[in-house]
């Protein structure tokens, strides 16, 4: 899966770091460091973290394929 955190929106509540410590960690008091590509093993953790974010700053795409490369093979309308 892929994820991105809108760090303008993030206010450092650190819920994600509690719930999915393999993917989200606090760096200092307030800065968040996260792994943009997480594996299947983290799926449940990440789902909980996404749901728990008080400002809904995490966007997840559960798919894990290089979509553009796939579609680049002439696929289209």
């Amino acid at each position: 899966m892929r994820l991105v955190v809108d760090l303008n929106r993030c206010q450092g509540y650190a819920q994600c770091a509690f719930l999915a410590p393999d993917v989200f960690t606090m760096h200092g008091e307030e800065a968040l460091i996260y792994t943009p590509r997480a594996g299947e093993a983290q799926r449940e953790q990440v789902a909980r973290a996404v749901a728990a974010c008080p400002v809904q700053a995490v966007t997840v795409d559960w798919a894990d394929v290089p979509v553009a490369a796939e579609e680049a093979g002439g696929h289209g309308r």
Binding site: M1, R2, L3, V4, T35, P36, R37, T59, V60, D61, A63, P66, V67, A68, A69, E71, A72, G74, H75, G76, R77
Partner: peptide, 20 residues
């Protein structure tokens, strides 16, 4: 994080032609 590991999540399917 590896340098090639920051692909953006998709909000939805695009059904696009890609010229990358």
């Amino acid at each position: 994080v590896p340098a090639d590991g920051t692909e953006l999540p998709r909000r939805r399917a695009l059904d696009a032609r890609w010229r990358l």
